[in-house]
Amino acid sequence: TTYKLILNGKTLKGETTTEAVDAETAERVFKEYAKKNGVDGEWTYDDATKTFTVTE
């Protein structure tokens, strides 16, 4: 399944996708990605669109 991440950081904005077996796995991948890019904020997930959003 393809999951999407929307980054709404103070200095970094953008989108990325990952293939994962479930939302929990995708969330771990995306949180590591955000951490590596210095983005830390509020996380939300929309199951209907398989989209995570992190907003600083």
Rank of each mutant, 00 (worst) to 15 (best):
I6K: 08
K35N: 12
A23L: 15
T1Q: 13
L5K: 00
E24I: 15
E42W: 08
L5R: 00
K13N: 10
G14P: 04
I6E: 04
E24D: 11
T44E: 15
T16E: 06
L12E: 06
K35F: 15
T25V: 09
T51D: 01
G9K: 04
K35L: 11
N37V: 15
L5F: 06
T11F: 13
N37E: 09
T53V: 10
A23R: 15
A20H: 03
F30Q: 00
A34Q: 02
I6N: 04
Y3A: 01
K36T: 15
T18W: 08
W43Q: 01
Y33P: 00
A23M: 10
N8L: 13
D40Y: 14
L7P: 01
V54W: 03
T25A: 15
A34V: 09
Y45F: 07
L5M: 05
G9C: 06
N8I: 11
V29I: 12
D46G: 02
E19W: 15
K4N: 06
K13S: 13
N8E: 09
L12I: 14
F52G: 00
E24L: 12
L5Y: 02
F52W: 08
D40W: 15
G41R: 01
R28I: 09
D47H: 09
V54I: 08
E24Q: 14
T49F: 05
T55P: 01
R28H: 09
F30V: 02
K50I: 02
G14I: 15
T18C: 09
G38A: 07
K50N: 07
K4Y: 14
D22Q: 04
E27C: 09
D46Q: 04
T18S: 05
K13A: 07
Y45Q: 01
K50C: 05
E24K: 13
A20Q: 08
T11Q: 10
A34L: 07
L7H: 03
Y45M: 02
T16D: 03
E24P: 09
F30C: 02
G41M: 02
D22N: 15
T49C: 04
D46K: 04
K13V: 10
G38C: 06
I6V: 12
T2Q: 10
R28G: 07
Y3P: 00
T49A: 10
F52Y: 06
T17C: 06
T18F: 11
A20F: 04
K31A: 05
Y3G: 00
Y45T: 01
T1D: 14
D22T: 06
G41F: 03
K36L: 13
T51K: 03
Y3L: 01
A26T: 01
V21K: 15
D40A: 11
T1F: 12
T1R: 08
D46S: 07
W43R: 00
K36N: 14
E15I: 13
E19I: 14
T16H: 15
L7M: 14
T44I: 08
T17H: 12
G38S: 07
L5W: 03
D47N: 09
E19C: 09
F30T: 00
T25M: 13
